[in-house]
């Protein structure tokens, strides 16, 4: 086992969690993530292998699926992000690659991103102050990429109207956390 300590996207030894009014903003460094891109003409092979590896069919545009350890959300034509617990799947890319073979290109993405779970009954009021996607109309399992504070982000709806995950570029985690906190305070 190597001896390098990890820090979170916000620079701490442990994940940060804040509660502002009725909203919880929690840093989530405990998810490993890899991108999966279908190789030319291999859609059928990818669909089959993915079903076998993850236990579910890869989701349609704008959607996310999950089962057991695995979750996946659509990111572009023939492209998905696949996530699994960091503790058991830290080296996620070879694991997915082993399941998909040469039908897909797999790239480790875990530390390219910072994930924030935002929860609370007012969470939509907060998101409305941050991004143009209609968060109030999003249903559980909706997943989309959009812009928050000039940053390209993924917004995933875990529970309709209550629980979302915002995934932003890791280097801007502090700016995103600031934006989420300010928006939460303005509706608190």
């Amino acid at each position: 086992m190597h001896n390098l300590a990890a820090i979170t996207p916000l620079g701490g030894a442990n994940a940060r969690e804040d509660r502002i009014g009725g909203i919880t903003i929690a840093e989530k460094p405990d998810r490993a993530m890899a991108s999966l891109a279908t190789r030319m003409g291999r859609d059928g092979d990818v669909a089959k292998a993915a079903k076998k590896l993850f236990g579910f069919a890869l989701p349609e545009p704008g959607r996310m699926e999950s089962k057991g350890d695995w979750a996946a959300f659509w990111t572009g034509p023939g492209q998905w992000m696949v996530t699994a617990p960091f503790v058991s799947h830290e080296d996620i890319a070879p694991i997915v690659k082993a399941g998909l073979g040469d039908a897909a290109s797999i790239t480790e993405q875990t530390d390219g991103w910072a994930q924030f779970d935002v929860d609370g009954s007012d969470v939509v009021d907060m998101l409305e102050r941050l991004c143009p996607v209609p968060s109030r109309r999003m249903k559980a399992g909706d997943a989309t990429r959009t812009s928050i504070e000039h940053l390209g982000c993924f917004v995933l709806c875990r529970v309709t109207g209550e629980s979302f995950t915002v995934i932003c570029p890791r280097s801007s985690a502090a700016s995103m956390h600031h934006a989420l906190s300010v928006a939460a305070r303005s509706i608190a």
Partner: peptide, 15 residues
């Protein structure tokens, strides 16, 4: 009038 033009969904699905 009518113009066909290229747009990149940079903050989206990269299409």
């Amino acid at each position: 009038g009518e113009h066909r033009e290229l747009w990149f969904h940079e903050q989206g699905d990269r299409s």
